[in-house]
């Protein structure tokens, strides 16, 4: 029925339109984060939701990731008698990669879906229209606090996750694999560079931005009642996760090239 070339063209154009819309949305969100009025209550509330309430699940993930990493690396490195590398590989793996990515993905699942559902409901029940008629800019009141909270809270979460993940590795290393505790810690810190931690925290800030952006964006443009809100929530998680995984590669490459 439809010409396949036309179909490809249409999909491509839709993609460009969506990308353009997202860019403008992101630009407005960032711009309004820096212009008064500020909404400290809204920012505080978002920080609590994104940061504090994500702590348990992120901490648990980090703990088990650190533990399993130690086991796997031990198995791998023992094949060429390099068991002493376990501690340093665990800490580098956690700080550079697994801490930010896993925390990012988990918070994306937790937060961006909830955000999209909340803002989407506000959209379909005309609360966003009501906001505008009460002289309140939805970008300032809804988007900016979420973006600010995302960008500031994710690095904090990841810092905590780093510590807990390394501790998980330490637990397994000393209890199961028979490393000497002092030597394990020594190895952990000897080969750790500032850049390992910093690159992880930079990633975390970017992921925090992506999570808040996709939650807010999908919610803001949702339409069509409860079903539309559900779709917005799913789309928020999927797009945030994909963006996290792709930008992860590019940020890594950026730090790698230096």
């Amino acid at each position: 029925m439809t010409n396949p070339v036309a179909l490809i063209g249409r999909i491509f154009l839709d993609f460009l339109a969506a990308a353009g819309r997202l860019s403008i949305f992101a630009y407005n969100g960032i711009r309004y984060a820096f212009v008064p009025p500020y909404y400290p209550r809204a920012i505080g509330r978002q920080m609590l939701t994104i940061g504090y309430f994500s702590l348990p699940v992120v901490g648990l993930t980090a703990l088990f990731t650190g533990m399993v990493l130690a086991l796997q690396i031990y198995i791998g490195s023992s094949r060429f008698n390099a068991e002493s590398a376990v501690a340093s590989i665990v800490v580098i793996g956690i700080t550079r990669e697994l801490g930010p990515v896993l925390a990012g993905l988990i918070v994306a699942g937790r937060v961006s879906a909830a955000m999209a559902a909340e803002i989407g409901t506000m959209r379909v029940t005309e609360q966003i229209d009501a906001l505008i008629t009460l002289s309140t800019n939805p970008f300032k009141y809804l988007m900016a606090p979420r973006l600010i909270a995302g960008v500031t809270m994710l690095p904090l979460l990841v810092a905590v996750a780093d510590v807990i993940g390394v501790f998980g590795g330490y637990l397994v290393g000393t209890r199961t694999l028979g490393f000497n505790p002092a030597a394990y810690l020594q190895n952990t810190f000897d080969y750790l560079h500032t850049e390992d931690v910093v690159s992880g925290l930079v990633k975390a800030a970017v992921f925090g931005f992506i999570i808040a952006l996709m939650g807010a964006y999908q919610g803001y443009f949702s339409k069509g009642g409860a079903q539309g809100v559900g779709r917005a929530a799913t789309n928020a998680v999927v797009t945030a996760s994909i963006l996290i995984l792709t930008t992860d590669y590019f940020i890594t490459k950026l730090f790698f090239a230096r």
């Binding site: 506000m122 029940t125 005309e126 609360q127 229209d129 009501a130 008629t133």
Partner: peptide
């Protein structure tokens, strides 16, 4: 924003902020 300050609106579905 200046023009909107002149207005008050009662929405058909109330549109109260549920948070």
């Amino acid at each position: 924003e200046r023009v909107l300050r002149k207005f008050g609106m009662l929405f058909q579905g109330s549109a109260l902020f549920d948070s």
